[in-house]
Amino acid sequence: MGCVCSTSSSEKVKTPGYEDPTILASETPFTVSEVDALYELYLKLSNSIIEDGLIHKEEFQLALFRNKNEKNLFADRIFDLFDVKRNGVIEFGEFVRSLGVFHPNAALEDKIAFAFRLYDLRQTGYIEKQELKEMVLALLHESDLYLSDEMIESIVDKTFEDADTKEDGRIDEDEWKAFVSQHPSLIKNMTLPYLKDITLAFPSFIARTEVEDSE
């Protein structure tokens, strides 16, 4: 095997929130090589606008939607959930641990819980009818789709009829779990098959890692 010198800057430069891949691998469904590969991706994302090795909201939104300025409620919510420390940036450890939930091998309960927090807009521990309506309205508006108020009202009411089995006007985590079990498509987006092949995206990096592993 010839020289497999990586041209990656990741060998030399570690971002401010860098964490040991071995530890991250032990806490997530990723292998050490996959965490290393995610670090390559993290470096790209975290230096796309502000070159400080931390993912800012604009960089996250740029990667998700190809724009950094247009307001997107969902990008905001996902960013906030990834930003566990609530310091306005996604650090490497937060990035890996959060993405771990989206791994095909991650526990279903974790995916369901993450989705619940996504919809629990005001973080009250419940999905309330009003906030669900607000989310539907905001997202339809952001995506230039139109449904009449009556139609939205009726869909949200029907959703609550089905999901709010305790009939207290809000969906708690247990009701959410039961609802998801009846509608598994609701957490379809919580699994990224691509994460199983993450190392394939960075072949030069794999070569380097393999050499390191064999040393």
Binding site: L41, K44, L45, A63, L64, F65, R66, N72, L73, F74, I78, L99, F102, Y119, L132, K133, M135, V136, L139, L140, E142, S143, L145, L147, I155, V156, K158, T159, D162, A163, H183, S185, L186, K188, N189, L192, Y194, I198, A201, F202
Partner: peptide, 24 residues
């Protein structure tokens, strides 16, 4: 219709993290 509010949110939000990996 079986469409529920969460489906609408999911469709209209374009919630799909796979685009994080688009440019490699």
């Amino acid at each position: 219709s079986n469409l529920n509010a969460f489906d609408i949110i999911s469709f209209s939000s374009g919630f799909d993290l796979s685009s994080l990996f688009d440019e490699k």
